[in-house]
Write a protein that binds this DNA or RNA. Structure first.
Length: 883
DNA sequence: TGGTTCACG
DNA sequence: ACGTACGTGAACCAC
């Protein structure tokens, strides 16, 4: 212990505000209950850094007690006109004290006084006792407290940078003594604290005057001898203000604080409180750091008993167990199983992959439908074991899927992160065991690996009941057990089946494209008058907006935009814009689709195997990755040709595709109950034509021309997205006023839709979430935000999510029934892909007729709505031809 | 690693 | 007055 005593004084109120605005990422920093945590996160970082750099022996965090202080008693405008605290910060306020006290420091506030006064008082007391004092604040006024024993650190930008003020540095920078800061303030006033000073006197003039006269008092004593000037007149006129302002700026060094200095001794961190606080706030990185700083991390774990198996017997299995298969790679179609663990309440077993996968006993158990298995990520587990020659059956619970249904933010691969959401911490993060980045590896010591896996299995066992209870509470039992869990098995099968892609097609395109790209590149260089990287938006914007002197149309965060809409506008003036558009289109096809796809073709089978991510989107849709097969080009003919490479696996087979027609608008018609929109669908009208007729007052459908229909279509889309006049105007290239008129007319003609929008936003505000037809939830904490943008976004999301999500629910039901029907009818057909509103199959030619009946029948009847669902089907020799 | 652009529904 | 359409993934650049 250092014999030198050091007191750290923090201006809690000021730092809390700085923390909030310095890390204003409200979307990212939210805990599971929707509480914003950005300021707490930033504040924690400040605290941790201060402990490291300052190593204080004593500490206090002072807060302002309230609006009225002794200063407002003699100047009631003091700090008037300040904005009220944003609600997103207010909700975090109570937790600052929890955090600070868990860190071992005291907090303090005193009615009638500000944090400054408390800090000033303790600083002076401590100086007398020979302490070294450090003050941390965002408020420059406190520099008046700087002495040889007291340093004042002011936050520069945000909270990461601090600037130290000592008497010397103040002298050097401003040419005055710390205490003269008060006189300075007296003359110049303070706009943020809302007191005036002397008119027309800013920092520069005030500094000059203080250097000359020393203090406000001195200045006025000698004012008669001052030369006649406008400034002198002002000084005389505002004399009262000057003294008032000086008084306001003076920190009270004698506040009646109740704690003795020795009570401010910094205590040990309260690890238990800190852990539960971090857990509540979902601060996983801090939790992790906390783990690392513990001398013996495993001490914080409960003991665990498991058996490392070398020889596997039937005794190792029971009727109901949890199972975890470990693989470090993300892509389970290509990775290698490391080890496997399984167990029940009584026994936990773990073994290396070589041992377990060779065992007939394990295979028999895994493939036995009647032996129930709980897992973490069923689809992944099924796929991994499939490639090891084992067809896993009897999966009755998936922890990852369950936690995603309860909270769509739980999508991670790491079981520890999800477990932590449910206050279970008896399992390590993968990162702590395997490392990260390039150094990721299985630990050399088998015992470490085995224990880690055994703990994962135990986590699944321990959390199962809790998760199921939560699902029941949310009315999501069926969504989980009847939809998502069965779907996981369906998706596993689709992924494993894969789809055949002919490399010859793509190779041909690759050669052609690269030749054309080179030509286009040369032409662009000629237009530009120099060579540059056409793929670099930054270099391109230099060419366009600096060298060629074109007028920028749109800005991005980092510079001028060169996106499609901008280049389209520029193409009227300069030919290079169109060339770049053409180049980009082709370059995209080449790099993402031609070359990109080629990399994913498995040489042995000629197939690509995407992975559907079932636990990612906020709406319930699937996503597809490695490769993404949900965004293969279709809109432009040139890109559409990529689909010619997607072919059936077997000779003489066909690609068969069925897609829902207008599913989102039909869902909207159903959940809004709008009579007119329902009628249009029930009578089988073209919805966009029908909208055009109603909104533009056209009687005869034949009079609806292409352009009018296009506009009506854009409005319909806008409605689904939670329309705004601005968005619609951008999309249609019309004025905001016109767009607003469209929308108003629309709501007039479809009053049920407007009522639905108002209702759903209201509901979101009440409950904090919105729901799909099948009770899939999306939480919207920003719906009550004081920030216009965040709130507006949440409102649009409240409208869109039930629509997009219900459509996602419907196709998921159809997929499960389709897979079942194929098996029951013993068809050879295989379901290959899902692209949000369409399903793609391959089948022998003779089954085409069956699918033409069966697929629409199942898709259209997946759910019973108040409007019909309609499905279109097509088939051909390739995906391209199934149109 | 974040920003920009662009492919899809 | 505010500054947006909803949901994704991949390639590339620049730091």
């Amino acid at each position: 212990m250092a014999d030198k005593k050091k007191l750290l004084l923090l201006d809690g109120s000021s730092l809390a505000f700085r923390s909030f605005y310095g890390l204003l990422d409200l979307n990212r920093f939210k805990n599971q209950n929707g509480l914003h945590t950005n300021a707490l996160f930033a504040f924690n970082r400040i605290l941790e850094r201060l402990f490291q750099t300052e190593e204080p022996t004593h500490m206090l965090v002072a807060f302002d007690a309230g609006k009225t202080t002794f200063r407002t008693e003699f100047y009631d405008e003091y700090k008037g006109g300040r904005q009220t605290m944003p609600s997103e910060l207010a909700e975090q306020w109570p937790y600052f004290k929890v955090l600070i006290e868990a860190m071992g420091s005291k907090t303090y506030e005193l009615p009638n006084f500000e944090a400054d006064d408390i800090i000033g008082t303790y600083a002076r007391q401590a100086e007398k006792e020979g302490f070294e004092v450090v003050i941390i604040t965002g408020d420059k006024d406190l520099t008046q407290l700087a002495t040889d024993q007291t340093r004042v650190d002011i936050t520069v930008k945000g909270v990461s940078d601090l600037k130290a003020y000592t008497p010397e540095s103040i002298r050097e920078e401003m040419g005055i003594e710390p205490l003269q800061i008060i006189d300075l303030k007296g003359l110049m006033g303070d706009s943020s604290d809302n007191y005036p000073g002397v008119r027309k006197v800013g920092e520069k003039t005030a500094l000059k005057l203080i250097k000359e006269y020393g203090s406000v008092e001195n200045l006025y004593e000698q004012i008669d001898s001052m030369k006649k000037s406008k400034m002198k007149e002002n000084l005389v006129a505002d004399k009262e203000n000057a003294f008032l302002s000086k008084r306001l700026a003076t920190i009270d060094l004698d506040t009646p604080v109740e704690m003795e200095l020795n009570q401010l001794t910094l205590a040990e961190r309260d690890a238990e409180k800190l852990v539960s606080f971090y857990r509540e706030m979902n601060f996983n990185s801090f939790l992790n750091d906390l783990d690392h700083t513990e001398d013996d991390r495993s001490d914080s774990f409960e003991e665990i008993v498991y058996e490392a198996v070398e020889t596997i017997t039937e005794d190792h299995f029971s009727n109901e167990m949890a199972l975890y298969v470990e693989m470090l790679e993300d892509n389970y179609h290509y990775g290698k199983i490391v080890a496997i663990s399984w167990g029940d309440e009584k026994h936990l077993y773990t073994g290396k992959a070589e041992v377990v996968l060779q065992s007939d006993e394990f295979k028999n158990w895994a493939e036995d439908q009647s032996k129930k298995k709980s897992v973490y990520d069923a689809k992944r587990t099924i796929a991994m074991l499939h490639y090891a020659g084992i067809e896993l059956k009897g999966v009755t619970f998936d922890m990852l899927l369950a936690s995603y249904i309860i909270n769509t933010n739980d999508s991670g691969r790491d079981i520890a992160a999800v477990a932590q959401e449910y206050q279970y911490t008896d399992v390590s993060f993968d990162e702590t065991v395997y490392g990260k980045g390039a150094k990721i590896a299985v630990p050399e010591d088998n015992a470490i690996l085995f224990e880690h896996l055994a703990r994962k299995v135990q986590a699944i066992l321990k959390l199962k009941t809790q998760l199921i209870t939560e699902l029941e509470k949310n009315n999501q039992y069926d969504l989980y057990f009847e939809m998502e869990l069965p779907l996981a098995m369906v998706l596993a099968e689709m992924e494993i089946t894969g789809i055949k892609v002919e490399p010859e097609q793509l190779e041909k395109m690759k050669v052609e494209f690269s030749k054309r790209l080179e030509e286009m590149e040369q032409q662009i260089y000629e237009e530009a008058g120099e060579e540059f990287n056409v793929n670099s938006p930054k270099q391109l914007s230099v060419i366009l907006f600096e060298k060629m002197g074109l007028t920028p149309i749109k800005k991005t965060k980092t510079g001028y935009s060169t996106a499609v809409d901008v280049l389209e506008k520029l193409s009227v003036t300069v030919p290079i814009a169109q060339m770049i558009l053409d180049y980009r289109q082709l370059a995209k096809l080449q790099s993402t689709y031609v070359e990109g796809l080629l990399k994913y073709i498995k040489p042995e089978t000629g197939k690509v195997h995407t992975r559907y991510i079932q636990t990612l989107t906020q709406t319930g849709r699937l996503s597809s990755t490695d490769p993404n097969l949900q965004n293969i080009p279709i809109r432009m003919e040139e890109g559409r040709k990529i689909r010619q490479a997607f072919v059936p696996e077997k000779e003489g087979w066909k690609i068969f595709a069925s897609d829902y027609s207008q599913i989102e608008l039909r869902v909207l018609a159903h959940i809004s109950g709008d009579e007119h929109m329902k009628e249009a669908f029930i009578e089988g009208q073209d919805i966009h034509t029908s909208t055009a007729m109603r909104v533009f007052g056209i009687e005869n459908p034949k009079e609806v021309d292409g352009n009018i229909r296009r506009q009506a279509k854009a409005v319909n889309f806008g409605i689904v997205y939670g329309i705004s006049d601005y968005g619609l105007s951008q999309n249609l290239g019309i004025t905001r006023k016109q767009a607003k008129e469209f929308i108003d007319r629309y709501f007039e003609k479809y009053p049920g839709i407007q009522a639905f929008m108002e209702r759903i936003v209201e509901e979101a505000k009440e409950k904090g979430f919105v729901e799909t037809l099948f009770h899939r939830r999306r939480y919207l904490p920003d719906i009550k935000s004081s920030n216009f943008n965040l709130r507006s976004f949440a409102e649009r999301t409240a409208i869109n999510s039930p629509i997009q999500g219900s459509a996602a629910d419907i196709i998921k039901v159809a997929m499960i029934r389709m897979q079942k029907a194929i098996k029951e009818k013993n068809l050879q057909a295989k379901m290959l892909l899902q692209v949000h509103d369409e399903l793609i199959f391959e089948c022998p030619e003779e089954e085409v007729a069956i699918l033409e009946e069966l697929v629409p029948q199942i898709m259209e009847n997946a759910v019973d709505l108040t409007v019909p669902l309609l499905v279109d089907s097509n088939y051909g020799d390739s995906w391209y031809d199934a149109k």
